[in-house]
């Protein structure tokens, strides 16, 4: 059974997964510089070991209405990915484990899902009693690129 390593993360009460092949780092509570005039889903830019990482707010990106976790208790995490040579940081609430997921075990994405989320999802997994939505990096970032064009 061919498995692929995925990193699990959550925003609000929802769990997501992403293939680790594109992930380079996970940052803890990063501070970024705001970018004037940018669309709301762009939090800003930050410096990571000399690379400039453009930070996206996944909450906005995935259109999740749930409240943010309290800032004094929990701090946001940032999953840094590389896409076509540019580094992007995805702001999420928590980053959990890296697990093996097998594509053959995934269920198709339910049509009832929010269209903007659907466009980024590639499958649904069951993991330890949670339903996990697997996302495709190309769709997460690529669509943003198109938005800008």
């Amino acid at each position: 059974m061919k498995t692929e390593k995925h990193v699990l993360f959550s925003i609000g009460s929802q769990m997501f997964a992403m293939s680790v092949s594109d992930v380079t780092d996970v940052l803890h509570n990063p501070v970024s510089t705001r970018i004037p005039l940018a669309v709301p889903e762009i939090v800003g830019v930050l410096n990571m070991r000399g690379y400039i990482v453009t930070v996206l707010d996944m909450r906005v990106r995935l259109n999740i209405q749930e409240d943010k976790p309290k800032p004094d208790i929990d701090t946001p995490m940032c999953i840094v990915v590389v896409f076509r040579g540019t580094r992007y940081g995805l702001m999420v609430d928590y980053v959990h484990d890296v697990v093996d997921l097998s594509a053959s075990l995934s269920a198709p994405v339910p049509p009832s899902l929010d269209p903007s989320v659907r466009s980024m999802a590639v499958g649904v997994y069951q993991h330890q009693k949670h339903l996990v939505l697997a996302l495709d990096i190309t769709k997460i970032v690529g669509i943003s690129e198109n938005l800008a064009a």
Partner: peptide, 12 residues
């Protein structure tokens, strides 16, 4: 360093 593609439309 070049801007990420999503930022390139900000002409300023």
């Amino acid at each position: 360093k070049p801007l990420a593609p999503i930022l390139q439309n900000l002409g300023v």
